[in-house]
Every structure is written in C-alpha cells, then in structure tokens.
Design a protein around this nucleic acid. Structure first.
Lengths: 225, 225
DNA sequence: AACAAGAGTTAGGCATGCCATAATCTCATC
DNA sequence: GATGAGATTATGGCATGCCTAACTCTTGTT
C-alpha cells in the first residue's frame, strides 16, 4: 500500500526521498550506500545504519553489499512526499505569491509536516492539479504504487521501450498465451506499430515480433525503462 | 528585542508559549514550576530543568524557588508564536476551508515551522488583520514587546484601571513633576474623567486625584492590570 | 518561633535519534 | 587468488528531553 502508516521522522523521510530520487535518476532500481550518503552529506557508515532502520520499518529492502531498494511502502511514502512537495510549491507560488526561488526551500520543510487533511485542502484549492507549474507530475494519493508507475500496454506510443510487469491474475488464459511465447515479467518490449481504429499492436519481444490484440494489450501492465 | 534570533526547538517554543499563557491568565507575571509542568504534562523536575535552559537562552529569568518570568526576548518569542498561530488559524479556516475544530491542531504544528517570509505572505494575503475571526488580537511583528503591551495614558477610556510603566526618559521635567507627587513605575492609576476637546484628565493615583495635561498623559505609558 | 506541607531543585539515569571514526569485510575483476 | 572500491559493524559521542528519588526552600499555621 502506498499509504504511509509509518512513523514520520524528518530523517527517515529524507532518506526515502533521496533513495527515490537517485533510483529514478539512474533508471537503476538499486541505490548504492555511498551515493546515498554523499547525496545526504553524511558518511557511508551513517547511511548504512539508516538503511538498516528503513528495512526494519518496512520501507526499504537491502541485501547487504548489494544496494537498497524501496519497498512498495517506501515507494508510496516517497511519492506521497513528492506529492506534498509539489503541491506546496504550487500553492506557495500561485496563492501566496512567494517567488519561485524561495518556494523550494519552504516546501522542503513543510512537506514533512503537512497533515493529510491539509494536503487534501491544498490540492482541492488548486483544483487537484496533475502537474506543477513546471510541468512535473504530481503523484496521486488515490492510486497504489503500481498504478502510478505502470501503464497498460495499449496506452503507449510507437517506439516506446518498456518492461513487462504483470497481468491481472484473473486472466489465466492470457498468461498461458504469453507464457507459450516466452513473454514473462521482466522481458523488454518495444512497441513497433499500432494499427489504427483499435487494430492489433506490433511489438518486438525477445527479438521476435508479435501481434497483440487490443484487449490483451490493455490488460498487460508495463513500466518504462 | 522581540525578534527571535534564538534557536527554534519545538520544546523551547512550547515552554515559552505555556509560560506566556499561564502568566497572562492569572494576571500574574511570575509562573510556578508546578503549574507550568502540569500545563505541559511533564513533571516539575523536567520543567525546572527546561526553565534553566530558557534562562541560558535569554528567554526567561528565574530566581530559584520564586517562579519564572519571560524576558523581553521571551515575551517577544511568545507573541511571535501567538501571531503565527492566529494567522495560521485564520488562513486555514478562511482560505482553505478547514473546519474550525481542526484548525487549532494544524496551527499548533505549523506555528513552529513557519518562516518569516511565509508568515508575511499569509498576513498579507489576509489583509494584515488585527484580530482573528474569534476577535482575538493578532500580535504585530513590527512593534517591540513594550509597544504591544503598554499604551499612552491618554488613550484610555474612563474607568480603566492601569499600572504606570514608564516615561520616555528624554523628559526629565515630567519625571520630576511625577516624582514630587509619588507617581513612580508600578503605581496603579484609575482614569476617572476626561474632559472633552483635549482638556485635562482626572486620575486617581495613590488614593488622591490628580489632573494631568494631555501632553503629559500622552507621554505616560501604562499597562492594563 | 517552629514546623509541616507544598513547591522547587538537583543529581543521576534512561531513551531516542542521528552522526562519526576506525577497523573489517565482500565482491567483482583482473 | 590478490586487490581495491564499496559496504558493514563496532563503538562512541552529542543533543534533546524526559523521569525518579532525594533533598531544599518558602510559607502559612499554630
């Protein structure tokens, strides 16, 4: 679940934010201790300790010597902080006329303190925007982490390269069809062509091209690389 | 000075707030350790320790076994917190439609975190109000503590009972005049009558009535009892 | 004036939270 | 299988702020 029931301490939230930011940046899912440490201005030892704490809180999972990854809870927390941050920036600038160069610093503080009600009230006051004035997306609070990060295959544009994530498991016959062609979670997919008017999609998977019907394509959830 | 250059920790601000609240309440300037402690839900020992800290921070002065008093710095901090609190309550309710019973709790948190710029922006957005929607005064940020708490004698209404605070010391002849009549800082004054059109004021002081010219009355600063 | 009771204080500890240094360990790569 | 970068532990420090227990004031009563 993306709803953070977890304790909220400034440091914890900052670590989660940092992990999210670095992971997103490199496209890499796993974040190194040293990178994390230098991003936060602490020693690797400190980061290492904090990562252990994040793990006990259920926010991150770390195979030692192998880097950190946010769990779904952690990812949810990161997205919720990001949401608060962008909502705050937008609100401070648009409603209170705070200059844009100051807005970030203010949001940095308030994002850790904003209550759920206040967040909702601010979002509402702004008309529940999807994006901040810079065009950056504001994560939604009513979607699970997966829903925020994955998309139905049929919503892609030609040329998009993505990774297969999953199929809603109520569709075993689709799973079987895919399995027969070696299409399993993790494989990369490149959308080659989409026929107009709901026609089939052509996608390159494992070096071979496949035709996928719209219904199937709509069920397949993928994430961008 | 009322401008808090001091470090801002949640606990320190809460103690200062509490001392201010209790002192104001009883009309008493000096606050007992036990009252303070029970107001904050801690033991007297804890309060005692914290009071010592407030003293080293220059926010309070405590003669041991004799109660705590806020210094001008402390009073300034208390007023500035109160200002932020009331501004926030007003803003949350009027601009964000947060219900009144919620507003207090939100403000309780945000008041400790609001930057000077944001405070100014909010005040501005609300039209720099003097009072919150409940009619409670919002302390001003551009006045010294004394200016917030004392008033020129000539601004009082008939029947007001006040205490003499001071005379601007550039007026030694006034001081002398007052001294001859035993009117010194601390004595109580009750305004009996004011003649219309800038005529003299009649005030009971030390059990005797005196006539005070408007110029003199305007120079005398008093505080309400 | 003595004293009891209540208020206040100090001393000593504990818990939390977070960071640092130093030493050691792991893993990928040569 | 040696090596070096990266990661981890062990240990300790510092800051906050709280508590209990034992002691000391102050004050009102007798």
């Amino acid at each position: 679940m993306g709803i953070p029931t977890v304790e909220r301490s400034r440091a914890v939230e900052d670590y989660v934010k940092a992990i999210h930011a670095i992971a997103d940046d490199g496209g890499d899912r796993s974040v190194g201790t040293t990178a994390l440490a230098s991003h936060l201005g602490v020693t690797p030892a400190s980061a290492s300790g904090m990562v252990r704490k994040l793990a006990t809180l259920g926010l991150a999972s770390s195979s030692p010597y192998r880097g950190v990854t946010l769990t779904d809870d952690g990812e949810g927390l990161a997205l919720s902080i990001l949401r608060r941050h962008r909502l705050l920036e937008t609100f401070l600038a648009q409603r209170l006329g705070i200059p844009w160069d100051r807005v970030h610093a203010e949001a940095e503080v308030l994002e850790h303190v904003l209550s759920v009600e206040l967040e909702a009230a601010i979002a509402n006051n702004l008309g529940n925007p999807d994006r901040d004035p810079h065009g950056a997306p504001i994560p939604r609070s009513d979607l699970t982490v997966e829903e925020q990060q994955t998309f139905p295959l049929d919503q892609l544009a030609e040329g998009d390269r993505v990774r297969f994530v999953r199929i809603p498991d109520e569709r075993p016959e689709m799973l079987r069809w895919l399995a027969e062609r070696g299409i399993a979670p993790g494989v990369e997919i490149e959308l080659k062509r989409r026929e107009p008017f709901g026609g089939p999609l052509t996608a390159a998977i494992n070096g071979r091209e496949h035709q996928l019907g719209v219904e199937l394509a709509a069920a397949i959830r993928v994430e961008y690389l």
